[in-house]
Design a protein around this nucleic acid. Structure first.
Lengths: 195, 195
DNA sequence: TTGCTATATGAATCAATATTCAATAATACA
DNA sequence: TGTATTATTGAATATTGATTCATATAGCAA
C-alpha cells in the first residue's frame, strides 16, 4: 500500500480559498486550484466529488465554527447583551483577520449558495441568525435595546453591513487596521449615526 | 424597409431582470432570456452584443438614476442631513418596490460587476458613495452626527445593510410591507440599537 | 404585384472547462 | 527484490451554453 503524501485534502482547500478569492467561484478553474495546491488536476477529484463541494466545504467549516461560538456566547450569564454582541463581532473579525482571502470568499459567494440552496449553508445561516436574534431579544427584554426595532430586519441589516465593511477592508491594503473596522462596527450597532 | 415589431430591446431587458433574479446571472441562459422575452435566441444579439452587456445595461440605468437623485438631494439647503438621508432611502425603496426582481438582481450581481471591473459600474458606485459621504460629513460638521464614526466605513456599512434587508424583503412574500423595512432602516441609521 | 432591405429566426458552431480514466509512480509487505 | 495495492497524473472526453449565420419573413416603395 502506498501512503498519501502530505495532506492534499487541506492543500486543495486552502488553495481553493485563494483562487476563489482572486477570481470568484465561477471564474475559477479546477485546474487553477490544482496548480495552486501543487497537485494534478485529477487529484482534486480524489478528495472532492466536484468543484462545488470544495466551496461547500469551506462554508460548512466556517459556519459550523461561527454557530458554535455564538451558541456559547448566547448562554453566558456574566455578560449583558451589548457585551455579547461585542464578543460575537470579535470572533468573526478574528477569523477573518487571520485569513483575509476567506473573508473575500465569504462575502462574495455566500449569497449564491443561499439563493441556490446549496448544501446546508442556508440552514447554517438561519441558525446563526436565530441565535443572534436571541441576544437582541434579550436586550429588548432587559430594556437596554430599543423595542421598536424589527428584530428580524435588524439581524439582516447587521450581517449585511458587516459583510460589506469586511469586503471593503479585505480589498484595501493588506491588513490595514481591522481593529478600526471592528470598533466602528460596534459603534454603528449601538449608537447609529446620531450624537 | 421593415419596421421593428414592438420594443424588443426593452422586452429583452425586462425579461433579463426576471430571469437573472430567478437563477442568478451566471446560471441564466441567453436562450431562457429570449424565451421569456418572446423572441428568438438570435434576436437578443440584434440588440445586445453579448449576455454581459444586458446585465451592464440594467445596472447602468439603475446607477445613473440613483446618482442623479442623490446629486439633487445633496444640494438641497431646505433639508437637514437626517432628512436628506431619509430622502435618499425613500428614493431607493421606491424604485425597488416598483420592481422587486430588480432589487434581487441588484443585490446579487452588484459585487460581481465591481470585483471584475465590468463597464463603469465601479465608477458609478464610487460616485454614489462619495455623494452619500457628503451628507454624512455635513451632519458631522453641523454637530448632528457622531464625529467618531469613520465616514468611509459607515457608508459601506449602510449600503451593505440596506442591500441585505432589501434582499430579505424581495425574497419574502410578494410586496410585504416595504414601508416597515424603510422605517426600520431609517431608525437603524439614526439610533442604532440602544434606547 | 414585385423586388428590396431590415428584421427575425433557431439550429449549427465554437469555446471553455468540469470531469473521467487509462497509464504511471510510489510505497508496503512478502 | 518482486509484487500487490493505492495514489497520482494530465491528456482526452463530455458537457454546457454563448455566439454565429444561413435562411425566412414582413413591411415598404416602385
Amino acid at each position: 500500500m502506498r501512503k498519501r503524501e502530505g495532506n492534499k485534502e487541506k492543500d486543495i482547500l486552502d488553495a481553493a480559498v485563494k483562487v476563489f478569492a482572486d477570481s470568484g467561484y465561477h471564474r475559477s478553474k479546477v485546474t487553477s486550484i490544482a496548480e495552486a495546491a501543487g497537485v494534478a488536476t485529477g487529484s482534486v477529484y480524489l478528495y472532492y466529488p466536484n468543484k462545488e463541494s470544495i466551496l461547500l466545504k469551506i462554508f460548512d467549516r466556517l459556519w459550523t465554527d461561527f454557530t458554535h461560538t455564538l451558541q456559547e456566547t448566547v448562554k453566558r450569564s456574566d455578560y449583558d447583551p451589548v457585551q455579547k454582541l461585542d464578543l460575537v463581532i470579535d470572533h468573526l473579525f478574528n477569523i477573518f483577520v487571520a485569513n483575509p482571502a476567506l473573508a473575500v470568499v465569504f462575502v462574495n459567494e455566500q449569497q449564491y449558495l443561499i439563493n441556490n440552496k446549496k448544501g446546508n449553508i442556508g440552514k447554517h445561516y438561519e441558525n446563526f441568525l436565530d441565535l443572534a436574534e436571541e441576544i437582541i431579544h434579550e436586550g429588548v427584554k432587559k430594556k437596554i435595546f430599543n423595542p421598536d426595532v424589527d428584530v428580524k430586519l435588524y439581524r439582516h441589516f447587521i450581517t449585511g453591513g458587516i459583510r460589506s465593511v469586511l469586503f471593503y477592508w479585505a480589498q484595501s491594503t493588506p491588513s490595514s487596521s481591522l481593529d478600526r473596522v471592528r470598533l466602528n462596527v460596534k459603534l454603528f450597532l449601538r449608537n447609529g449615526l446620531l450624537l
